[in-house]
Amino acid sequence: MLDTATHRHHHLPDRPGVGYKPQHFAAIMEAPAPVEWFEIHAENYMGDGGRPLAQLRHLAERFAISVHGVGLSIGGEAPLDRDHLARLKHLTGWLQPARFSEHLAWSTHDTQFLNDLLPLPYTAQTLTRVADHIDQVQEALGRQMLLENPSTYLAFAESDMPETAFLAEIARRTGCGLLLDVNNVFVSATNQQTDPRAYIDAFPLHLVGEIHLGGHDEDADDHGAPLLIDSHGATVVDPVWALYAYTIARTGPRPTLIEWDNDVPDWPVLAAEAARAAAVLDRVPA
């Protein structure tokens, strides 16, 4: 009998993946195509047992898994939560996922977890802090992590370097890879009134280990300027698909995730989004 633990899927294929939702388990087991891998939110799989862990074990036998943390607060002023780091080490230890990623953001202050990805200024001081935290994560987990670019709604007057330069320098200092969320690029660029293609051009694309695509909502700020909100609750819009094709033409095929976390639709809707990503990937030479 094959020992499944030694036949894990060690690499994310350069194909479409989808954020895993328990309600899709049966549909996925029956007909996953064109989805070839799944991403889970680490914090949902830190219980002691029951259905979540049982489903995850089944999923991991068939598919490569990417573990995406949403609670580590890497951009926080305070030291990392050692208990939480230990929980992540436990999860990545038994699951042996193909990837682990987290956000360039903070979510914990003092003892309060705010359950949102909050922004930070880009300065020499925050760069040192984030790099130290990433060193600590990579050392604790014994693996390289990917750091994701955030969607932002405002900026800090004190920031003195562009986000792309900040991410590139973090990666240079720590050896981490990057997760490029193309929807976040579009949302942030619209909100900051900058050019999303210029962001892609300035991004260290050779470090991209995974791409995210998702939906957003549209609003306006106090002055009537467009204010896009990263909702993960709708289909990917055409301008984001165009920006994705622009990106993939430069990176070559990369593992590409459809993220849908709110008002989650039935499986065929997600499979159709994944098929659209597959069509873009198919047009690009490897």
């Binding site: 914090e43 949902n44 830190m46 219980g47 949403v70 609670g71 580590l72 607060s73 939560d81 939480h84 929980r87 979510s107 914990t108 003892t111 309060q112 977890f113 705010l114 359950n115």
Partner: peptide
Amino acid sequence: NPPESPLMM
């Protein structure tokens, strides 16, 4: 009563 842990469970 904001959460005291990243585990929303």
